[in-house]
């Protein structure tokens, strides 16, 4: 019988959710080609159930107060990367003037990707629109010019190339959620698959 040795990178690191392994690289999960979106054409919107649409272009986005975010990220394919450094604008800032009764949002991306989220999990300092990674503007492959950053959920929820949020009354599933992944995606509860 063959005996597996392994490398034991995991140890007993309390920052690692169950079933996750450390990586130094930055694995990429996506379903189609990387869309090319220039900052000049970029726009981010929030549309509520009444149809009211709040809009920001790149210059307006850059004028919002940004933060440096240090976060551990957990990909559903079992990789985790600790202490990643981002710069972005908290979704709380975008939601300042938004009035909604809906409990859920659907995030939409350039390229057609979607992912569903409970509103209460993207407010109160839990989610950002990030435009820098490791001190540099975000690579298209990693979601540039701007992506969602929601570190407490599996990373497919941090939609790359984000272009808007649409409020929804029901928690309708997004792209991966219709294709075998969990509706919620909490890494600490191993909510990987449906």
């Amino acid at each position: 019988m063959a005996v597996f040795g392994g490398r034991r990178q995991r140890g007993d690191n309390p920052a690692l959710p169950p079933g996750q392994f450390l990586t130094g690289s930055f694995p990429v999960l996506s379903a189609g080609p990387t869309p090319s979106v220039s900052a000049a054409d970029w726009e981010f919107t929030i549309r509520t159930e009444t149809g009211k649409t709040h809009r920001w272009n790149w210059a307006q986005f850059m004028a919002l107060p940004s933060e440096i975010i240090s976060a551990d990220i957990h990909c559903v394919t079992s990789w985790s990367k600790l202490n990643t450094a981002w710069r972005g604008v908290s979704l709380d800032t975008f939601f300042d003037d938004v009035e909604t009764e809906s409990d859920f949002v659907m995030a939409h991306s350039y390229g057609g990707y979607t992912t569903n989220l409970p509103l209460k999990e993207v407010l109160n300092g839990q989610a950002w629109i990030a435009h820098e990674y490791d001190g540099k503007s975000l690579d298209p492959e990693h979601g540039g010019p701007a992506r969602l950053l929601i570190p407490h959920l599996y990373f497919w929820k941090s939609a790359k190339w984000v272009r808007g949020l649409v409020m929804q009354n029901k928690n309708a599933p997004g792209f991966w959620e219709r294709n075998g992944y969990n509706l919620h995606g909490d890494p600490w509860r191993e909510e990987r698959y449906s």
């Binding site: 990429v28 996506s30 189609g32 990387t34 492959e141």
Partner: peptide
């Protein structure tokens, strides 16, 4: 990943709609 990224962008350049390209890295 590098192969997939390069081929997918080549296909888009050739005029394939991104909706008709599925990738696995």
């Amino acid at each position: 990943s590098g192969f997939v990224e390069a081929v997918a962008s080549g296909l888009v350049e050739l005029g394939h709609s991104a909706d008709n390209i599925r990738i696995e890295r």
